[in-house]
Design a protein around this nucleic acid. Sequence first.
DNA 1: GCCAACGTTGGC
DNA 2: GCCAACGTTGGC
Length: 161
Amino acid sequence: MPPEPTRFGLIKSEPHVYGLDHLRRDKRTAWENIRNHQAKNTLMSFGVGDLLLFYHSNADPPAAVGVARVVSAPHPDETQFDARGDYFDPTATREKPRWFCVDVEFVEEFPKPVSLDALKADSALAGMLVTRKGNRLSVTPVEQAHFERVVAMGGGKTRVR
DNA sequence: GCCAACGTTGGC
DNA sequence: GCCAACGTTGGC
């Protein structure tokens, strides 16, 4: 059994780039390419066992579609060192990495995706960062009550404890 | 495809 | 250190 979660979050991805189906296929992946300091700071607060809503952006409709679990501590994002890659950061060094990632594993897909409209319409979810107009953060913290509420709305099986 | 939001860059 | 220009995200 994984350790109990202490924090909750939401990770965004475009379904045709890397969607929940890709994570189910891979079972586990390094959540790389986060290049925003606010998102990075949220990521750095995550530890093994923490639970994440998996959100499809640029989708029709945009929606929370399932749950992933954090399965590693934050560690340097290897893509920052790859001079040929799109995510190369010339200011980063092995001694002083600039960007980090966590490994995540597939937990479940919701029987019913919870659309952005549904998230916005539910008064119990007021204040969820993903519903904020103009929000562009790809990793956001989520309150435990909000996490549990979204799982319930999606008909998910994930229980916090 | 448009555009609002907002982070980053670079001239000064 | 200010701020205009620019680039990116992501909903619509």
